[in-house]
Write a protein that binds this DNA or RNA. Structure first.
Lengths: 236, 236
DNA sequence: TAGATTGTTAATCGATTAACAATC
DNA sequence: TAGATTGTTAATCGATTAACAATC
């Protein structure tokens, strides 16, 4: 194909795919779901899987699976299929699971605690380092093995501890301020649960705004219209 | 246009749009976001808005806004724009905010508590009626004004209290069982936070599976690739 | 009326699916 | 080798954008 022919001998195919063929957001959004299913298969002891079989399990077309995996270079082998362990590992790598990102959770309310109590972060290779709050009653305490620090020290802490990710479970009103402090302290990604849309594009910080309420509304829409649209399975 | 001409005089345009023109999932997914922004505008005292102005605020094209709103019939007025209050209300209606849905939260861990403590439900017209758990230590207590009941009574409670929505914040292992009990007790929608994909299509129950971890992974992907894909703002 | 802005069609763009040649 | 299944192109489908006529 033209694009590939042009550069043959200069880069290998994978480089071309990653560098020249910007992978669409649609594909990226599907990666975590592939990763989950492959993890399940791995735990079941499955060694190899074909796009056809995975397609039956996941309810997507085999064509889409092959196209998606091919965006990042050949993960499979003709006549054999995909090696479950290898594919799982490769997708995890693409998703940054092996970057060793370090995170803090800002806001030790019920949601902050809920997040701190799960294995969600460690399972995805993200290390939670500390929690922050502005309430005198929780500052200095521990939750689930994590120390709770004064939010006033957030910036310094992030700088000194090389924090990459800030998880915002603070009220709407203080979200932007906390985000700015972290951005200026070198944090590169914000996972924002405050019910507002944060943007830190100008600081080159990636933001993932989470709107639980939108999911609830989508559920209600589905119920109201009798669910004939099928399941609206959301990310997050 | 052909489709409309065919039925002119039989149905009015809105009916045609709703009945014959199945609205795409892409549009439905955008409705909660429109609703949020319109709510903000309403609170700011804004009376009318044009698709052009809303487009600047929300960062989508005016064309898309007009197309989206038109799926459900004419919400605007030529030469004037859209009445903020009316549009907000209409979209809320589409999303089922006025159905008076009644919900229970199953699983009173940190996440269950976090959800019960927010105003998320009441703000969207959903009434939380009770909480359920299997832990003797919390059964019989109150949280945030809600009684915590024994999960063994979940089915009967849903039947007797006409519950429409079940919120699942239980561990993976018990999610399916709880969902089945509720489905058989007349619950029509499940908001599932257990980290697995639930399907109750055969029972005609709508499910919204929430995968927080997927959102975290998307954030990490964005960070790893330098964020040049822009913000992956997720639903939920 | 003139200006503004929607509603709606047509054009474009991108994503999904189908088909099949390459190859293990 | 024959069979299986990917990688990859081409065809289809759907969603987004552009343009403009309708109309307030």
């Amino acid at each position: 194909m033209e694009r590939i022919d042009k550069v043959k001998g200069t880069f290998d195919k994978r480089m071309v795919d990653i560098e020249k063929n910007p992978v669409s957001v649609a594909v990226i959004r599907r990666l975590p779901r592939y990763h989950r299913y492959l993890g399940d298969l791995l735990r079941e002891g499955k060694l190899r899987i074909s796009s056809a079989e995975l397609s039956r399990i996941m309810g997507v077309t085999a064509s889409q699976i092959r196209q998606d995996f091919n965006c990042f270079g050949g993960f499979g082998q003709q006549g054999y299929g995909y090696n479950v362990k290898y594919l799982h590992s490769k997708i995890g790598e693409l998703l940054g699971m092996k970057e060793g990102y370090r995170a803090v959770i800002v806001g030790v309310g019920n949601l902050g605690k809920a997040l701190a109590a799960t294995h969600m972060f460690e399972r995805r290779g993200v290390n939670v380092i500390a929690l922050f709050d502005n309430d005198e009653r929780v500052i200095g305490t521990e939750f689930n093995g994590f120390s709770v620090y004064d939010v006033k020290t957030l910036g310094d802490f992030c700088r000194e501890n090389n924090i990459h990710i800030g998880v915002l479970t603070v009220p709407k009103e203080s979200a932007y301020e906390c985000a700015l402090v972290m951005a200026d302290a070198g944090v590169r990604g914000i996972w924002n649960f405050a019910n507002m849309e944060l943007s830190l594009k100008e600081k080159n910080v990636v933001v993932q705004n989470v709107h639980m309420g939108d999911s609830l509304m989508t559920l209600c829409f589905g119920m109201k219209t009798g669910g004939e649209k099928g399941i609206f399975d959301d990310q997050v």
